[in-house]
Design a protein around this nucleic acid. Structure first.
Lengths: 225, 225, 225, 225
DNA sequence: TATGAATGAGCCTTCATTCAT
DNA sequence: CATGAATGAAGGCTCATTCAT
């Protein structure tokens, strides 16, 4: 599991490394995160952010060039970490175990991601919103995901298929089903935190069970007339 | 399956009934739909819509009161039809068959929804965007889904559970997994139509297979250490 | 006292003469009068007038050319009658009496005007508003007062001065003081009808007494150090 | 007499105290005052004000929040000073003299107000216009006059009545007649400055004479048949 | 004559951004 | 570095007016 899983932690860590993130910047990012996740990027003004952060409006532009720069600073760390961290989890789950089962693998993944979502609700809400908001922003989000990461993902899936633990569908299809299930959970957790099942362990069980059954190799194929 | 599944068809039908939707209104809605789905609601000006529709700016307000009125006119028919149509499909699938199997049920549902998504890409993109954009709009979207519909959904699931065809989890959980899988497909199809698998039948097979395996009653429960 | 002292009466009379004012026009004028007097000409839209009158918006322009045409139709009758009627009153008061006293004169005038104001509150509110609203409208109001009328006013005052009943100041000054006193009453009555003294007779007495004492010829001039 | 009797002087004074009124604000207020008094608040656009003041349109809103904020900034100082200053004049006139006569009192008041009007023509035109324009604005104007001021006014009048110098009518009636006479003068001076008698001293004499005679206690009441 | 959909100029206001202090 | 007054383009919306029906 990646060590840095929260926005705050991320910036704290960056600060520790080379002091790039100042106290002023953190105040601004915290204010912007709260406002963006509540009202949407387009519906929050720079004045509002400045007021809420307790700084002057000009300070925003000194530190982040653009209003969009603030958004980037919020999204980047998450987007750049979410997938690598996920893959790392997969990898560890497979490598650490003597017998590489889909079950162990899925459970590890789900457990990891559920925890991640619970820790980064606000940022994820912003990212989701941006992702769906318009074609240009969507491109930007996707380009943050490096091709390197996809290669790793394919390797993991191929290994499981070779072990007879994963259904023999295209990796792309499997990835999409995986993302759908985890994404569906994320959406509910992020948008309706108060409605979501509080019993985290049960949630993990259901998601895992569903995925394992859905993605195990079939003994007999589905018959459609 | 509902007869009216496309925005255009919907308005045409309304027009046939009582002439409520005029030619002008349709021109505006078509222009707005194209622009909103491409650039996002907030990034499209009323002037732009008017130009693109070939009418004066004032005409927008004459016909839809608000910029937001245009959005509503785009979203309402879809939102109010998407879930009822889905349930209707479920119901028919269960009732029409002598032996009520989960397979028949899921296949019918998936087939129906895949077709629906392919026919309403643009509108769905707008709805997705709005849904994630901010808390207030999200509320509006959800309130368009009547409680009546949820009651019907529960009845269908209860019937399948009684027949020993559906895993014995809370309906809420099952519904969420169902939505996740279909939603994940929808998101891909809507946002990246050019990347999506063109082989519709195969897509339906994979989604159905995944869901049937994932939601069938377990012979032996998942074992977690 | 002039026979036509109310807007409604005026239009009814016009209608009787040559049928110029139709039922539609009266509905429009009634609605416009109510709205203008409450919210001010600029703050009332043509749509609002049309709705309130129960006609289509286009009908307003068929009947009155302009939004301004409606205003004119409301103001004209009052403005063109207010001064002539006033002078007529003065004249009658002076001519009817064997001994032409200022008292009889003032009492007649005040009685007449108080009654007039009480009958035409709404229209007067509109006229007042327009009068003060901007220089151009003010010009328009004043040009509705014909020079003929002013000549008559001067004749009346000269006659009273000759009879030793009126202070020997310029007619302009006397007229202004007269208007001030009556105007002040009018403003209060028109703008705060609920606050105004309900005892009409006492009001008349005070106004008359004040004017008679103020405008009688002085036995000894005011001494200022 | 209050020391601050002109808009310009007022703002200059405020500026002196704590620098609240900036040069930019004064430019805007001057431009707005000129335009409002000429064409009426509703008929002046914010663009026009900005152009005329030599600033950007946004600057208006930066400094006064609203178009209405500009109006308030013009009206407030006058409205809040006009009545207090008037009462102060009354008070001084009565207290300063050994023998408290109505004459001295009225002359002081009239002299003071005539001077005030001549100095604040433009602002008064705006205030008059607003006052008559619609019910809501009228309320706003009246609420600017504190009840404290009315109490003082009553005290002054009671003192003069006790000294046998003032007619024994309700204070409300006396106040209304006083306001009518001064208001009538003001209206003429404000709306038709070029028509108004330039001989200020004579104007003061006529107004004073008229008021003193009109408001002195009667030796014999007016007889009406 | 009456209608009301269509018009488009103009309105007030918001907002990200700049820059002198 | 931080400030916040100034900017002006762009925004949504109102409104009197026109005109085909």
């Amino acid at each position: 599991m990646s060590e840095i899983e929260t926005i705050q932690a991320y910036y704290a860590a960056s600060l520790g490394k080379d002091g790039r993130i100042t106290k002023t910047q953190r105040k601004i990012l915290a204010a912007a995160l709260a406002l963006f996740s509540e009202k949407g990027y387009e519906n929050v003004g720079t004045r509002e952010i400045a007021d809420c952060a307790g700084v002057a409006e000009g300070t925003l532009f000194h530190n982040f060039v653009n209003k969009n720069g603030i958004l980037d600073a919020i999204m980047q760390p998450i987007v750049q970490n979410i997938l690598p961290a996920m893959l790392n989890t997969l990898d560890q789950a497979v490598l650490d175990q003597a017998d590489q089962t889909l079950t162990a693998f899925i459970v590890a993944l789900v457990t990891d991601r559920v925890a991640f979502v619970e820790r980064n609700q606000a940022s994820l809400a912003v990212i989701l919103s941006q992702f769906f908001n318009n074609a240009k922003d969507r491109q930007a989000v996707l380009q943050m995901v490096s091709p390197e990461v996809l290669k790793q993902a394919n390797e993991v899936m191929d290994r499981l298929k070779a072990a007879g633990e994963l259904v023999d569908w295209p990796n792309r299809t499997i990835l999409q089903l995986l993302f759908s299930t985890l994404g569906g959970y994320m959406v509910e957790a992020v948008l309706y935190p108060q409605l979501t099942n509080r019993d985290t362990q049960q949630t993990i069980n259901h998601l895992s069970d569903f995925l394992v059954n859905g993605l195990s190799p079939r003994r007999m194929p589905l018959h459609v007339d």
